[in-house]
Amino acid sequence: MARIAFNNVWKEYGDQVVLERLNLTVGDGEFCTVVGASGCGKTTFLRMLLGQESPTRGRILLDGEPLPAEPGRDRGIVFQRYSVFPHLTVLNNVLLGLELKDAPLTARLFGRARRQARDKAIQMLDAVGLGQALDKYPSALSGGMQQRLALAQSLVMEPRILLLDEPFGALDPGIRSDMHRLVLDLWRKLGLTVFMITHDLEEGFYLGTRLLVFDKLRVDPQAPGAYGASITYDLPVGATERRLYEDIRDDVRATPRALAAAVDAAG
């Protein structure tokens, strides 16, 4: 059964159309990578999934029900930055979600309940390779370690959907491929549905099961905000040919240039 459905979704800020005519169904356990030129609305797309923004038009359904209009435990997120709490140690960062869930009033666990939660948190931290850094504060961690912590923190809550907004964009290429392996591993093990934005098309092409390319189909040089981006390619990946990858790459690269040329021609 399809889990997430976008029915003709539009998103506008004032008279700027950011996204238009999004139609999409994503099934359980899919791993979608999202690529597109900078500023074309990828983060906006993710924020709508998160419930932080709502569509201007159209509907987003989750299992046939309208998506809740605010973030919740079923949708985890890792941002590019600021995803972990600076005032909590590594262990407490992961423990936090479990404490919030079981102690509505004090948001703290004690005794046996805490020990159980602690064991679970440590297991998760071991899985992302942070088992040795339990008592450190995030400011003492490297960028890659902070992102792994953010992942562990989200995944310990067993979300159904995991949203990743260029989570590894700031990391070195070597560490990045380690992180990809980690994410793929966790995705397979936990049976999540994943949406991952990346600015690296190659990354989008070889990671996951499905590639979504966002781009503007129409451009009005007089009014750059008149038309929004929509999904121009929606491909199963893994089995795709190299040539198509190069085609899309040229497309995505060409967008800003095409826009500039169109403006020139008009002016």
Partner: peptide
């Protein structure tokens, strides 16, 4: 405080009260 932190807390299931207690006040 970075909006990301408040959103993150919500994705961990925090209520307004819990966000105040565990995220805002300690910071």
């Amino acid at each position: 405080l970075p909006a990301e932190l408040l959103v993150k807390a919500q994705t961990l299931g925090a209520s307004t009260w819990q966000i105040i207690l565990r995220v805002v006040v300690p910071q």
